[in-house]
Structure formats: structure tokens, C-alpha cells
Computed example of a mutant assay.
Amino acid sequence: MPEFRYGPVEYTLVGFEGERPDASVIDALTEMLETGHVRLVDFLLIAKSDAGEVTVIEVEDDPDGIDLGDIALAASGITGEDDIAEFAELVPPGGSAALVAVELTYQRELARRLAASGGVVLQHERIPAPVVNALIDHLENEGA
């Protein structure tokens, strides 16, 4: 059976006001990483000027920026230029965002076994938490 050093990697682009995410966002990320279910692979800050000029900062190259404490990026640089350009299109002019790439370590074994069996993931979709919660609330209120 093949050995995988990494499980699937998921990107999340989080828009925020100002040039840096709030400290509570970093705290939530740190707490999630401490569970061991995910591993931080890459972390970038993307800013777009009012004129549309894009600036990208690798968190590890920004000593005065975001403090990740003892957390090291597992594969800094895995986010390619094409990926960054695609995500940067979603940042509004005058806005900023954090692009966070996390390895879903809890899925590594499943990925290994799928590959060993010849299985291929044909599609993967994610429903954002706000949508799931709104749908569940609607369904529960509909039945009340």
C-alpha cells in the first residue's frame, strides 16, 4: 500500500477588515491545529489596493505580522502562483484576506486506502458552515 506523507489539503480564503486578521481568528486556528486533525501547510496574506494592485505576504516572511507561536508551516510555498492569482480575484479592491491551507490529517488514511484499492475521488464538495447551519435551522423550524 502506498504511504502518504500528507492527506488532502484544503484552502480557505477569509476576508477581513484592515491589513491583518483579528487575533481571535489566529487563536481559533491555533486551537484547531492543537487537536491534530489538521496541519497548517501554508498561510498567506493577500491585499488589494483600491487601484487593484495585489500584494501577497508569506506569513513566515513577515516578522512583524501574524504571530503563529510555535506553529510551523508544514509545506510553505505549496500554494502556487496560479492559485494565489485565482484567490486574489476574490479580494475586493481596498480589501485584505488570509489564505490558509490546511492538511486534513484525519483523511490521510482514507486517501491511502482509496489509492491502494484503485479508487479515485471523482468530486469533492464542501458546504460552508453558515449554509449548513441556516439550512438546519430552516428544517427544524419548518417541522415545529
Results as ranks from 00 to 15, higher is better:
19 E>S: 11
82 D>T: 07
70 D>V: 04
71 I>A: 04
43 F>K: 08
25 V>S: 11
54 V>G: 03
101 A>H: 09
91 V>N: 03
98 A>Q: 04
102 V>L: 15
105 T>V: 11
54 V>I: 06
91 V>A: 05
120 V>S: 03
68 L>G: 01
47 A>R: 11
69 G>C: 03
64 D>P: 09
40 L>S: 01
54 V>F: 14
45 L>M: 12
44 L>G: 02
20 R>F: 14
20 R>K: 11
48 K>L: 10
80 G>R: 05
39 R>W: 10
93 P>V: 06
67 D>M: 05
16 F>P: 02
97 A>E: 02
21 P>H: 10
76 S>W: 13
54 V>T: 01
77 G>T: 15
17 E>R: 11
57 I>Q: 09
23 A>T: 15
82 D>A: 14
93 P>L: 06
27 D>I: 15
35 T>V: 07
42 D>F: 10
63 P>I: 09
56 V>G: 01
73 L>H: 10
17 E>N: 14
29 L>E: 04
117 S>N: 08
67 D>Q: 04
60 E>I: 09
121 V>G: 07
15 G>S: 11
73 L>Y: 11
56 V>K: 07
57 I>N: 07
38 V>I: 10
87 F>L: 05
76 S>I: 09
68 L>P: 04
34 E>Y: 11
67 D>T: 14
23 A>E: 10
64 D>E: 14
120 V>I: 05
98 A>I: 01
37 H>E: 14
104 L>F: 06
16 F>E: 02
106 Y>H: 14
49 S>M: 02
114 L>R: 00
97 A>V: 09
17 E>W: 04
107 Q>N: 12
62 D>S: 13
73 L>F: 08
99 L>I: 07
15 G>D: 10
87 F>N: 00
109 E>D: 08
85 A>H: 12
